[in-house]
Design a binder for these strands. Structure first.
Lengths: 138, 138
DNA sequence: TTAATTTTGCAACACTGTTGCAAAACTTTA
DNA sequence: TAAAGTTTTGCAACAGTGTTGCAAAATTAA
């Protein structure tokens, strides 16, 4: 397990540090999107706030995790699929936010529908956020 | 003009104050989504920060404006259509963010496409955010 | 005009995120 | 394995964003 995570770091030309291993492990274990605050709590205040911010930013830059826009003004992060690389994200899936438990899921199998945009507008990226109740909360 | 805005306030059981008139007027004039910061600047520092926050919150509660989730962790607000009322928003349109000028548009004529969600999940609301270049910036 | 209610501004605070810099950890090389 | 070079971390300090309590001011109702 640790080895697999180490590999991810090495493949991205990143030093293997306790902090990075721990944060990547949290994403792998939880299988859902996490906020900076979530990680700070889960890591048992072991790492400095600033370090966590920088680590998340590094991971986003490297295409290891992606950010998810949310309605309540908090940035969420989730693991990318293998198709993402440095500077090139391909996270074309729908995000689901459960209003009951607050969990944010990446629905990897649900693709973004085509949206027809008025003449004169050109589209780079489309984000779809769905709010509702997840399968564990009903 | 002022009278129309006053009416909106009265219809929602809100006192007609200089602050509220000004903020509603800014939304009407600009015809695009505004952040708290935008309003603070545009109102010429005439009103207290706190007052602006509270006014925006009041308007959201009353169904006069709605919030727009954004990727960069800032809350945007835009006028609702007449179909919204206290506690019942019906803002089922696509939002477009121009990466050039930063303007957020409500594309009222573009309806949210149907998204197929896995079994066990129930949907309350769907938000679609499109990033790209708007018609004024190309 | 006065009384009752609502809204505002101020002060103070909490939370989130950023930057610079020296110390510590990690990687590379021999 | 140890030393040198590089990267990462923790600390301190700060900026921006948003919230709360409370007394003063403005608005509405009488």
């Amino acid at each position: 397990m640790k080895d697999v995570i180490s590999e991810i770091l090495k493949n991205n030309q990143l030093s293997v540090t306790e902090n990075r291993l721990k944060i990547l492990e949290l994403f792998q274990k939880n299988g859902k999107a996490l906020s900076h605050g979530d990680i700070e709590k889960m890591s048992g205040k072991h790492f400095d706030r600033v370090t966590i911010y920088r680590t998340l930013q590094t991971f986003v830059d490297k295409g290891i995790i992606h950010t998810i826009p949310t309605a309540d003004n908090s940035i969420m992060y989730a693991l990318c699929k293998d198709t993402c690389s440095e500077g090139h994200h391909h996270d074309d899936h729908v995000h689901f936010l459960c209003e009951e438990c607050g969990t944010t899921y990446c629905l990897d199998n649900v693709t973004i529908p085509q949206v027809t945009i008025p003449k004169g507008f050109s589209v780079h990226q489309t984000n779809v956020l769905v709010n509702g109740i997840c399968k564990n909360c009903r």
